[in-house]
Design a protein around this nucleic acid. Structure first.
Lengths: 247, 247
DNA sequence: TACTACATCTCGCAT
DNA sequence: ATGCGAGGTGTAGTA
């Protein structure tokens, strides 16, 4: 044990009440109960507690936290016979997390100030905007009428018609389209057929790639696939490739 | 600035080459390019680098990392005129992340040892197991034949028949069933009808709750809804309700 | 609040 | 490697 329990409790409580962000390395067991039940046997982890009482437990490998508690949870610490108990409870979500800390290797806390939002380009919304602004990507006769239609019609990415006034529904995916993408499109097409009382509705799936099964189902339903790359994808990679190619 | 750049670089490089887990608080800007493009303006964050070179950037609030890089990325650090540049590249995923560190508040690193896996109960698999072992939850005539049945159009949670040898397909959801759950079930039912050459196939959606639109679509397709709570759900909460927080 | 669909989704499993 | 679906999914947007 590198950090003494008494000293740790002191620091922890002070940081917690000051809404500092806390991180520490420790040797611990973890129990969770809520939407499911879980237990993580003894091992070394890094714990993060944020100013909004979000709690994250990370193992030394992997992307995702192995355990976590949502913001606005209550956090308490108490000393037991031979370990520290850190408890987090979220009564709203009915979530309970207990960390049995058997040793603390290192502790750190600081009041972090950050009000910034991430500026992100390349989402599915950007892709449907691109198609709306460049309808020839779908077909030379495609006339878009609306995008991101959030009505009882369904949430249709791009909605329009061709030069024969036949309706066209476009569903965008920024990754390989699978079976569920086809059923999603199918649901919209059927809803529009029902609402507009017409059978002349074409479904178009716009994606960089489509799986073989999805392609088969798409064709079974007389829908169309249009290979379209989402905007802003791999921009730097493509630039790098170009630069390398110049040498 | 609490930690000097030169000292930080030294510590950082040592920890990185020793595959220690690193966390530090800093004032920084972040750029990402890969599957999308993002920029996060200047602010305070906690950075975590794991032994497998996973990199996480967390703001002082919220559950999810605001930026991240997957395991097995290359990480480098270099000193610029008035900032530190931490670069992470993943050529396999074509991902690029740059952190422009303008100040370091606190730094910590340690070699964490952990080979444990999470033991989790209450997943959808547990729910389909429960139904398989207790078929009367679906109906008194239900005879399950298989679980996790793989078909070309997806895999079926519980598959069986009633006492008239009519096929029954059960799709389990551990949360509120929505439209997409109904289309998923519908896809399986249609595929089984085609494969078995029969029209007598019943789809059953087993979930604790179902949305109104999903319920309507379900009934339109002559499927059945069965209210079933997933196992282990809120075990501690329910116990607490009984024992008034004895735990 | 409930419902819907996206996500730099991630992850595991099976082909 | 790819396809498919679950996730203690989380998160945003809308009615």
């Amino acid at each position: 044990m590198v950090v003494g329990f008494d000293h740790f409790i002191e620091e922890f409580k002070t940081a917690l009440s000051a809404n500092q962000t806390i991180t520490f390395f420790c040797h611990c067991k973890i129990r969770y109960s809520g939407r499911a039940e879980s237990f993580l046997p003894i091992g070394d982890r890094v714990i993060i507690i944020k100013s909004d009482n979000t709690l994250l437990v990370h193992q030394p490998d992997g992307n995702n936290p192995i355990n976590y508690m949502k913001p606005q949870s209550q956090i308490t610490i108490s000393k037991k016979e031979d370990y520290l108990l850190i408890s987090s409870r979220n009564l709203q979500h009915k979530d309970y997390l207990d960390i049995e800390v058997q040793g603390v290797y290192s502790f750190m806390s600081y009041k972090l100030e950050d009000g910034q939002k991430l500026l992100l380009e390349g989402s599915e919304k950007d892709m449907s905007d691109m198609i709306y602004d460049n309808p020839e990507l779908i077909s030379k006769n495609f006339k878009p009428l609306s995008r991101e239609e959030h009505t009882k019609y369904g949430f249709i990415d791009v909605f329009g018609h061709n030069d024969k006034n036949e309706l066209i529904i476009v569903e965008c995916k920024r990754y390989t389209a699978s079976l569920s993408c086809v059923t999603q499109l199918r649901r919209y097409v059927e809803k529009i057929k029902e609402l507009k009382g017409t059978k002349k509705v074409t479904g178009v799936l716009a994606a960089p790639k489509i799986s073989p099964n999805a392609k088969k189902m798409l064709l079974d339903w007389k829908f169309k696939y249009k290979k379209i790359n989402p905007p802003k994808r791999l921009e730097r990679y493509n630039k790098d490739q170009k630069t390398l190619g110049e040498y």
